[in-house]
Design a protein around this nucleic acid. Structure first.
Lengths: 113, 113
DNA sequence: GTATCATATGAACAGATATTCATATGAAAG
DNA sequence: CTTTCATATGAATATCTGTTCATATGATAC
C-alpha cells in the first residue's frame, strides 16, 4: 500500500484524525449516488412544486410505470421523497428542502462561468 | 407509454413547460454521479483543508496510486478538483467552494434528526 | 363476489463503472 | 544519458445498476 518514497507522515497523521469515519463517508457516497441518475433527477425536479402520483410522473417523463416505481422506491429509501395514499393512487412529494438545496448547488456549479 | 387511465393533462402541460431541458438534467445527474462514490468522497474530504499530492492521498486512504489517479481524473473532468505541478509531484486541491457546500448539504441530510 | 385501476415487486439482462495490473510519460538527480 | 521517483493511462475483469417483462398487491366500482 506504500505508494511512494517521499514522506508526508506528519501531514497525514493530522488528517487521519480529522477524517469522518468510514460509515459516514460511505453513507454520503450512497446518498449522492441516488442523485446520480438522470431519471431520478427528473423525478425530483418534477416534484419541486407539486406532489404527483406515479402514473403522472411516468407520463411526464415518457417512461414505464414500473421503471418510475422502482426509482421512487430508491428515492424513498434515501428519504428524499415521501408518499401518501389517496384512494387508489399514491401521491409522492419531496421529503424536505435538502433536495432542493443539493440540486440547487449542483445547478450553480454547472451554470457558473 | 400511456401508463394510466386517469387524467392529469392539465397539471402536466404546465409542468412540462417548466422542466429544465434534458441536457441540463443529464449534466446534473452526471455531476452527482461523481459524488456518488466512496473513494471520490474520501478524496474530496481529504482535500477540504490542505492540498495533497497523489501518493499522499493513496497512503491516507490505503489505496493504490493507480486507483487514486483514475479517480482524480474523474474529479478533474467534473471540475471538482484542480492540480498543479510542483517538481515531480502533482498537487491536487478543491476547485471551488461548491464541493464543500454540496457535501455539507448531504451531510446535513444524513445527520438530521 | 368479480373486474378494473394504480402501484409495487422479483427475476433477468444489458450497459456502466471501479479496481487491478502492466506499462508509459515526464521530471529531477546522479 | 541513465536511473529513479511520481503520476498517468489502457485493457481486462468483476461488480453494480437501470430498465423491462411478467406478475402480485391492494383499493374501488359494479
Amino acid at each position: 500500500m506504500k505508494a511512494s518514497v517521499h514522506n508526508h507522515d506528519e501531514a497525514l497523521k493530522d488528517l487521519r484524525a480529522k477524517m469522518p469515519d468510514d460509515k459516514l463517508l460511505c453513507d454520503l457516497g450512497d446518498l449522492f449516488k441516488v442523485f446520480g441518475d438522470t431519471t431520478r433527477i427528473k423525478i425530483l425536479y418534477s416534484l419541486f412544486e407539486f406532489e404527483l402520483c406515479v402514473c403522472a410522473i411516468a407520463e411526464l417523463l415518457c417512461m414505464t410505470q414500473s421503471a418510475i416505481s422502482h426509482q421512487l422506491k430508491v428515492l424513498k429509501t434515501a428519504k428524499l421523497v415521501k408518499s401518501r395514499r389517496e384512494g387508489r393512487t399514491i401521491v409522492y412529494s419531496l421529503a424536505d428542502d435538502h433536495v432542493r438545496s443539493i440540486i440547487g448547488q449542483g445547478y450553480e456549479h454547472l451554470t457558473e462561468e
